[in-house]
Design a protein around this nucleic acid. Structure first.
Lengths: 331, 331
DNA sequence: CGCGTTTGTGAAAACGTTTACATCCGAACC
DNA sequence: GGTTCGGATGTAAACGTTTTCACAAACGCG
């Protein structure tokens, strides 16, 4: 509440001097400094980030935005933790928003970002052609994409080798003797979906297994769509003996569909999903998954963003992290 | 980027007129309005929330803060969704922060809140005596507590009937014939822990079961502490035949400890935990839990906050929602 | 002792809004 | 035809900072 004005009045100096005391940088003699600091304490002064941000040129707000598609998805929550830890370490505050895999909400929050003059934004774009994000990038706002990438625009990017992850997962199932492997994709215009699909197809091709189109379904990354689509696949005349599912939430949904039908995993149907879960070990059965280093994705993205804020003209960088196939008992 | 200045120049009017067009409220003749609106579009004008917030008196920033202890805890994620939906519906932006059950972080973010001149804050206090939160309340900042309450200070509050939830859970175990019921609490100075403990003790008392102090352990709400403490209990000379655990994450940890020892649930040990999980149904075995209406907690808290922002002097209100015992197969 | 140089401090502008107040102009009134 | 009114628009102050520039005093030096 107390402003520089009031502090200055109490210390009988000018507001400029108070500001200088606050920002340490400038010269102010020890005696005055002491007086000012006393006044600061007396009034319980708290600087206004708002005023500061209004006055300052870009890149010094110490505020960045993170827009995640679904805060209830543990994968994104883990990314958020990574981002948050790196931000907090650099004393940056984080404006965290949940876009709910919804373009309108995303646009609303992107507007908030520019409107709040944040220093930069971390986000997984809605899909490869996300217009609102591209627009934002073009305004010169520092943007780091995580997990998903944009097709036409080059930005800083921290992603996971989705092709490799999917290839390994499918190969693992093939090795176990499966030839009818169902796949539940995510939204198809998302870069991760595209890459994972490639990995699956290549693994099949390499093993000389023909692709059964009816075993491929596209979901929307939500639990419910996993349940529905897994149900469809299991109810097929010639159902798959294994399921490869593109994210954690849909995998949980699929598991529910399997249980509902009284089928046994992995005897009746094997399952491997993308994204590890803290409780994957305690699921019935413990789930084989492609583990993504989500925390690191977040942390590195934030560090990358800080670099870009410091040096806005540096060329965009891509970091690709490796996933890991964690074999438990669902395969 | 474009400011009122530039728009005004292009439309050949004063900035006041532009501002009036923007805020609809005031009179401006149709012709000028059209000209201004064209200029607005041409320049792709985006208002600066920062400047606006600096200028305006309290309560009109259309920005509120939410500080949650752990973004990776599905219970809080669900609360966050409730808050976020209600905020978005009212066109409020949400400054979401993760305090990591850490007082320093919490203080940092509380400072950010005042410093950012948010209109209000929703949070579960760290514990009943959380000094930083009390301080904030005393500054007159609208604050709504969720889930946990403060001991000495009366604020708006949306909570769950924890006593009832715990009482029901313990009674259910007693009914199933258990007399040695282990309990893993959370941090003991948190209001929810205190209430749940009361519920457990009363249920035992009502059934005439003496309390075994060695069956009561205090954790920190994290998965790891659930694993550790459940391990301790199970390794006791005279171990409990049932476990009542105070939150979801510790329950998952406890489940791991049980599996690790090769014990069967519920044959060797029954388990009931607080907080439902989207995948509780797919755990091994499907978990009996006390379900809290987390989404509603969040939604109602945000609505309450909006009311307080509109009418800062209204007396504090408490809403208590009912939990529900969901019986699955772990008991 | 006079003159440049340094050092500490203050005055004021700027950031982008909102809004109270002033101004202008035409219409309505008597 | 003045006077008054009211409606549309402009002017300028204010919000709380940072920062440039100016200024005064002290200092160093020949």
């Amino acid at each position: 509440m107390a402003s520089l004005q009031e502090v200055a009045a109490r210390a009988k100096v000018s507001i400029a001097t108070v500001s200088r005391v606050l920002n340490k940088s400038d010269k102010v003699v020890a005696e005055t400094r002491a007086v000012v600091e006393q006044a600061l304490r007396d009034l319980g002064y708290r600087p206004s980030r708002v005023a500061r941000r209004l006055r300052m040129k870009d890149g010094r707000a110490h505020l960045v935005g993170l827009i995640i598609p679904d805060i209830q998805n543990p994968f994104y929550a883990e990314i958020a933790r990574g981002v948050e830890d790196a931000a907090y370490a650099a004393e940056y505050a984080l404006l965290l928003c949940n876009s709910d895999e919804n373009l309108d909400k995303e646009r609303f929050y992107l507007d908030v970002m520019t409107s709040e003059s944040v220093d930069g934004v971390v986000l997984p774009p809605f899909d490869e052609t996300d217009a609102a994000v591209i627009e934002l990038v073009k305004t010169g706002m520092p943007v780091v994409c995580v997990d998903r990438s944009l097709a036409k625009v080059k930005t800083d990017l921290v992603e996971v080798d989705n092709y490799r992850g999917a290839f390994d997962a499918a190969s693992h199932l093939i090795e176990k003797g499966h030839r009818n492997i169902g796949m539940i994709e995510g939204r198809t215009h998302v870069s991760t979906s595209r890459e994972r699909r490639r990995g699956y197809l290549d693994a099949l091709a390499e093993a000389g297994i023909p692709v059964r189109k009816d075993l491929i379904r596209a979901g929307d990354f939500r639990q419910e769509s996993g349940r529905l689509l897994a149900g469809e696949l299991l109810d097929l005349r010639k159902p798959p003996t294994a399921l490869f599912i593109f994210n954690n939430l849909m995998t949980v949904g699929a598991l529910a569909a399997v249980h509902q039908r009284g089928l046994k995993v992995p005897k009746d149907v094997a399952i491997v999903g993308f994204d590890d879960l803290p409780w994957a070990e305690s699921l019935d059965p413990p789930l084989t998954v492609v583990r993504q280093p989500a925390y690191d994705v977040g942390r590195q993205a934030m560090e990358m963003l800080l670099k870009r804020i410091m040096e806005p003209t540096r060329p965009p960088v891509t970091v690709r992290l490796l996933p890991e196939l964690v074999i438990r008992r669902s395969t």
